[in-house]
């Protein structure tokens, strides 16, 4: 076999079966959309029950976190991801899935070093860089206000 690593990489690329991008994107769109529709229904219900818009969106987030966590615990969320592809990654339910699934998985290493420590193994980076970027954004807003 006379190939360099780079040539072999290109060769493998040409031989490998590609992901069905169009189909996957369409399924993601439908699944992501469905999850959002469910969220919207809860939001409308809460507003109909007399909550302000802000309070209703907070209550909706909490509700969606609950459903994401429950479906993960029942081993149904990963089945949804099989059908609905990346549509299940969307914030709130996907985030709940990413925290509950390692918590379940690493429970066998104990409540402290397993469940609690490994809980953020997937979501941790999102939290860290989310907080860091919000701090940077806040500083920029502050500076812009001062200059004005």
């Amino acid at each position: 076999m006379n190939m360099t690593k780079a040539e072999y990489g290109r060769y493998v690329e040409s031989m490998a079966e590609k992901s069905a991008l169009v189909k996957n994107m369409a399924l993601s769109f439908v699944m992501g959309g469905l999850i959002c529709v469910v969220g919207q229904i809860f939001s409308n219900l809460y507003m109909g029950a007399g909550l302000s818009k802000d309070a209703a969106s907070t209550a909706t987030s909490v509700t969606m976190i609950f459903w994401g966590a429950l479906l993960t615990a029942l081993n149904l969320y990963d089945d949804m991801a099989k059908v609905g592809k990346a549509g299940t990654i969307i914030p709130i339910t996907g985030f709940a899935n990413s925290i509950v699934s390692p918590a379940m998985e690493f429970k066998s290493e104990g409540l402290v070093l397993g469940l609690a420590a490994k809980m953020f193994v997937v979501a941790g980076p999102v939290l860290v860089y989310g907080v860091v970027s919000s701090v940077i954004y806040g500083l920029i807003v502050l500076l812009v206000h001062h200059i004005r």
Binding site: T72, A73, D78, M80, T88, S101, M104
Partner: peptide, 13 residues
């Protein structure tokens, strides 16, 4: 790889 209950995607390879 990922926890079993995490909705990770598996590529064709």
């Amino acid at each position: 790889r990922m926890p079993l209950a995490y909705g990770a995607q598996r590529p064709p390879t």
